[in-house]
Each structure stands twice: as C-alpha cells, then as structure tokens.
Computed example of a mutant assay.
Amino acid sequence: MNIRQLKGFAAVMDSGLISKAADEIGITQPAMSKMIKQIEDELGIRLFERSRGRLFPTPEASYLKNVANSVLNQLNEATRFLQDYGNMRAGDLRVMSIPGPSLFFLPNLINEFVPALSQVNASLMAWNSSSIVNWISNHQSGVGIVEIYDPNPFLRLETLDLRCACALSKSHKLAAKEILTPEDLSQESLALIVSDHPLFEDIQAVFKAAKCPMNIKFQSDLFVPQFAMIEDRGLIGIIDPINIRNYEIYSGRSDNIVFRRFEPRVGLKLTVVSPSLRPLSALENEFRSVLVGELTKIAEPVLR
C-alpha cells in the first residue's frame, strides 16, 4: 500500500462517498473505486459495505483509518519540517569560535541570521583553535572560526587577513592624524595582545623594521579589555576589525574611541573551518557563506 492509496482511502472514510473523495484527491470516480478494490485485494479484507449509494466502513476499515491518520500526519509534519529546514527556518546551527569573535560579533551575526519565531536551534561555543578543529573533524558538522591553520583533509578551510587599525581616545593628540606609523607610536604607551600571539609578532616586526621602540603598558589575551585602558588611560591599541565591531556593538557606537589606519599593514589572520567529508546542512552552509561574507566585508575596515 502506498501513500496515494492511504490518502484516497482516508478521503473515502471522511466523506463516505466515492465521488466526493475522488474530487478531493483529483482522480476520476472509477479510478477511486479501483484504488479501494486494490487495497482490499492486497489486504485480503473487505473495507466497506455498500448500501443505498453510500459506503459504510467495516471494523477493519476503522482500524486502518487510525493507522492512515497517524502515517499521514507524520508525513505532513515531516514535510513541513523539511520545507522549513530547506527555507532555513528549522534545524541546528552549531557555531564554534576562539573567544574574541564569540563576545559580541558572532552573537550579533547569529541574531541577524536566524529568523524570528523560527525553529532553529543555535549554539555558540568559545573554545581554543585545536578543540574546534578536533570537534569539527570528528563530527563533520558545524562552522568554526580559528586562528590560521594548516591544511587538513577533514576540513574545508578559508583564511582571511583582517587589517588592524590603531584605537585611541578621541581626545588623544594623535587622533587628528588619519594614518599612524611606528614612528608616531614610538613615544606612546601601548595596549597590545599578549606576546605569544601571532599578531604581536607581526606588530613587533614592523616596529623593529622601523627601528622604533615599543612602550607596552598593558597586554591581554583578548582585545576587549584593552578598550578600557585606551579610553581611561590614553593608551593606544592595534586592534583587528572583529574587535572594532565588538566595541561598536557593546558601546552602542560610542565615539569615545576612534580608529585610525596603521601603516605598514598588519593583519589578524583567521580561518573559517567546516567539514570537508560530509556536506553541511542548508542552514549551516548558508551561515558559513554569510560569515565569510561579513569577514570579507570588514577585512579592510571603514574607520571613523
């Protein structure tokens, strides 16, 4: 017995008339009569007694109707769910990231991406790069942001180079300049990422090449704590676009801190990771595209 036969049988049970049931599912009356006969022959039972032009269901038909209702309801529910899934209004969205992007940038992006009142279950985990790579490699699902990573046969990798900018108080004397260099910063107090971070090594290299000292007064493993030192103590930071966005989100686009281009260019290199051995769901694949697009858009930040 197939789904079409179940629908035809259920229509006959609901209407009690072959003609009305045939119209309901879009076939002729003889075709509907033949369908009911085929079901009876297949099951070896009589489903209806005929009297005065109407059909009266047997006890076996009543039992089959309960089964048909259950099957058709599950089919309708599955159809609705998969349509929502295809329209990205249902499903699981797993996002993993190193801590910085998970503070404000990713929650804001997920909030904009997931439709209101949808059936999407979103999760965001802040882990280190190795844990993210291991999880996605083993489970072959999810989307992650890690520090630049070597090629991996289990992962699809897309690395982006996000140009950093100087962050300083709007009242700082150097805020009047559009471009800042190591020479400009050589006599200033700096707030920077910790010394074992790849970005610190790149910053250190450009200062060394310019033969300029680095007067570091504050270091942290996240960029966000640096903003308090920049705003309150007049330090200058060299900040990536994600954390510029973090600041704009949590500060309500306050103008207490301004951002200026830093030359020569230094960038924070991040990699978007996803499985390579199994396709992502439509939902996660679309989010991955949105994430890469957003990172590409802010890679060369518009400064204010």
Results as ranks from 00 to 15, higher is better:
Leu185Met: 11
Thr181Cys: 05
Ile236Ser: 08
Met214Ala: 02
Gly144Pro: 04
Phe207Lys: 04
Asp255Gly: 03
Gly237Gln: 01
Ser131Gly: 11
Pro151Lys: 07
Leu155Tyr: 05
Ile136Pro: 06
Val258Lys: 01
His197Met: 02
Leu190Thr: 07
Asp232Gln: 14
Ser195Tyr: 09
Pro182Glu: 02
Ser189Ile: 11
Phe223Ser: 04
Pro153Arg: 04
Ser131Ala: 15
Ile242Cys: 05
Cys166Gly: 11
Ile244Tyr: 04
Glu231Leu: 10
Glu158Val: 14
Asp232Ser: 14
Arg163Thr: 12
Ile203Gln: 02
Phe218Gln: 02
Gly237Asp: 02
Lys177Glu: 13
Val146Asp: 04
Lys177Asn: 14
Asp161Pro: 02
Gln226Val: 04
Val194Met: 07
Leu180Met: 01
Ala228Tyr: 13
Ser220Cys: 02
Leu162Gln: 07
Ile136Met: 10
Cys212Ile: 01
Ile257Ala: 09
Asn256Arg: 14
Ile216Val: 11
Val146Tyr: 02
Ile216Phe: 00
Ser186Glu: 09
Ser251Leu: 14
Leu160Ala: 04
Leu199Thr: 03
Ile236Lys: 01
Val133Asp: 06
Leu124Phe: 05
Asp184His: 15
Lys217Phe: 07
Arg233Ala: 10
Ile239Tyr: 02
His172Phe: 08
Tyr250Lys: 11
Leu157Met: 15
Ala126Val: 07
Tyr250His: 12
Leu235Pro: 03
Ser141Trp: 06
Ile179Leu: 08
Ser141Ala: 15
Ile239Leu: 01
Leu124Val: 09
Glu183Thr: 12
Asn128Val: 09
Phe227Ser: 03
Ser129Pro: 01
Ala126Asp: 06
Pro213Val: 03
Phe200Gly: 00
Gly234Glu: 09
Cys212Asp: 05
Ser169Asn: 12
Met229Leu: 15
Ser130Asp: 15
Pro151Phe: 00
Cys166His: 04
Leu222Thr: 03
Ser123Asn: 01
Asp240Gly: 10
Ser171Pro: 00
Val133Phe: 00
Ile242Gln: 06
Leu180Pro: 06
Leu160His: 11
Met214Cys: 04
Ser220Ile: 01
Glu158Ile: 12
Ile203Val: 12
Leu185Gly: 05
Ile238Gly: 02
Arg163Ile: 14
Trp127His: 10
Gln204Phe: 10
Ser131Asn: 12
Trp127Lys: 05
Arg163Cys: 12
Ser130Tyr: 11
Phe227Met: 13
Arg163Met: 07
Lys177His: 11
Trp135Pro: 00
Pro182Lys: 01
Glu248Tyr: 12
His172Ser: 13
Leu124Thr: 06
Phe154Leu: 14
Arg245Asn: 14
Glu178Lys: 15
Ala191Ile: 03
Met229Cys: 12
Glu183Lys: 11
Glu178Ile: 09
Asn134Cys: 09
Asp232Thr: 12
Gln226Asn: 07
Tyr149Lys: 09
Arg156Ser: 15
Ser123Phe: 04
Pro241Lys: 03
Met229Phe: 14
Leu162Gly: 03
Gly234His: 12
Asn138Tyr: 13
